[in-house]
Design a protein around this nucleic acid. Sequence first.
DNA 1: CTGAAAGCGCTAACAG
DNA 2: CTGTTAGCGCTTTCAG
Lengths: 335, 335
Amino acid sequence: MPTIKDVAAVAGVSTATVSRVLNGERVREETKQEVISAVKALGYRPNQIARSLKTQKTFSVGFVVPKFDPFFMQVAQAIEYVLNEKGYSLIVCNSDENLEREIGRVKMLSQQQVDGLLVVPTSGTASHLVELQQKGRPIVLVDRMVRDMVVDCVLVDNVNGAYQAVEHLVTLGHQRIGLINGRLEVTTGEERYRGYQRVFEDYNMPVDEELIGIGDFTIESGYLLTKKLLGLSEPPTAVFVANYEMTIGALTAIHELGIRMPYDLALVGFDDMELTRLAAPPLTTVIQPMREIGETAARLLCKRMDGDHSDYPQMYRLKPELAVRGSSDPAWRSV
Amino acid sequence: MPTIKDVAAVAGVSTATVSRVLNGERVREETKQEVISAVKALGYRPNQIARSLKTQKTFSVGFVVPKFDPFFMQVAQAIEYVLNEKGYSLIVCNSDENLEREIGRVKMLSQQQVDGLLVVPTSGTASHLVELQQKGRPIVLVDRMVRDMVVDCVLVDNVNGAYQAVEHLVTLGHQRIGLINGRLEVTTGEERYRGYQRVFEDYNMPVDEELIGIGDFTIESGYLLTKKLLGLSEPPTAVFVANYEMTIGALTAIHELGIRMPYDLALVGFDDMELTRLAAPPLTTVIQPMREIGETAARLLCKRMDGDHSDYPQMYRLKPELAVRGSSDPAWRSV
DNA sequence: CTGAAAGCGCTAACAG
DNA sequence: CTGTTAGCGCTTTCAG
């Protein structure tokens, strides 16, 4: 691999001049051309590592997700797109919904000297993030928050999303409405739970604790909790499932039990993936703006990496939207 | 951020000694302890960039995918897992099924000095990859091949997968079998096409070109091609759809047209995602071993990065498996 | 076993 | 406008 020295030698100039040409600084047109042809002749490409060491800028950012699932990957795609526009590359890491691993990944990214970090935190603990932050690396939390940390974040209004979902079920006349949710330490879990509760408050209905299932946002746990709820002596007539993976699990259980939606059970799920419209019947879901989440987070991070610290800390609360379809509404008809 | 110098100063030793401790070389136990406590006291973390510059090893590898879709992300997850075990981090890039972008991403990764590269090539052109390869960077192609390049690759036996799918349909008595496929320049497209053809050869049946739809592996094109096939004066009685995204598109069209599977139309799709078992009826699909693809590719790359060039070039052809379910087989019953 | 010193490839003052 | 020079933070001979 040729270095800047080789280029300088071939072009008959100093390395400084080559560097200037490479970085678009003013250089006499003639010498510039010589440098350029030397670069071409050698097939030279600047070594980003060396550049980074000097400039303290790596043009890479990390994104730590709890899972490579469709939701986070859609967000990742949007992030990657925005970042690449600005010359950054994205290092995607999987924390596996496990704090130990999350800490490991963050540490690794930190040592790789990423210019910024996007994290979907696995739990409420934040010390490893705070540490990084204090070293001056911009961090933006995505989709989930942590307590005890002042930090930029891009979130969805989960309370509102859950509220819309459950209120919709109430409006349809349901009283016994089950909730299938993830761990409450995860802010999305806690917020969706709050949205659920709030509907009961507002409509002055009692909450039956028996109908509240707490799992871990996986397909498996959605499946198990649904089975459990439907096996109660007085099963719910409607269920709200608080994320995509659990929705898949719930559907599996429902299919298995031969339960017909929306007649035997009305269901509102979460996230608008392909599955949603293709299921039979099509699923009523709370749609999260995945693309917008990613773009917003990436732009905010870029702003911070550019040294613009205005309005810190900034918190976005993007609005989810309820799409009513056949799984909840007997009157629903395809367009 | 403290540097190795600071640690050396605090510990009262030279930077060389600190480096030795950090890298596990033999150092007198006593001095070692002093270094360790200095490291802790300062919260020191080695700068991977500086280390990389010296050692010519970045402990990062790139993965270029045509899309952040479920199939590639499952593969990515497996890759990430294996790589992280060995201390590497994974930079995931999206070529958007576009050669220009692919070249851009590869160039970026090359400048980031990744230690190795995993690529799902967008097209048959390979010059940008050959170039990198000649610079001594290990490359492993994943899922797709390119012509005119001697390179390690981890592929699926697509001919066989398609063959199984189509033969299954023939066995069920179908004669007019549609094919919904991606571009033939993409090797997976070409191979699945060949598997389709081969069944017709082997069973001595004529291929009706009218029933062959060539799209681009997207949901949209799966949708359009399905509509087109089903709108023929003599529509097929069965369809084989050659990837997951197109399968989703096909299902959308089928639902829209109110066609009942498997009675009006038998369908075999590709890839075993959640959707598969939850669709009504459950989908017969060709299952690709996504996890194995990722693990195999990652291990092979690691081997190359470790300097082991035995059996070069190595080509894996992992075996897909046909899962027969209700969308093709009237006799199918859920377990 | 440890330290001094060179240098990985590049950029950025500072001179000229 | 261009060259010289001094590092960025780390590893690695080579001496001691």
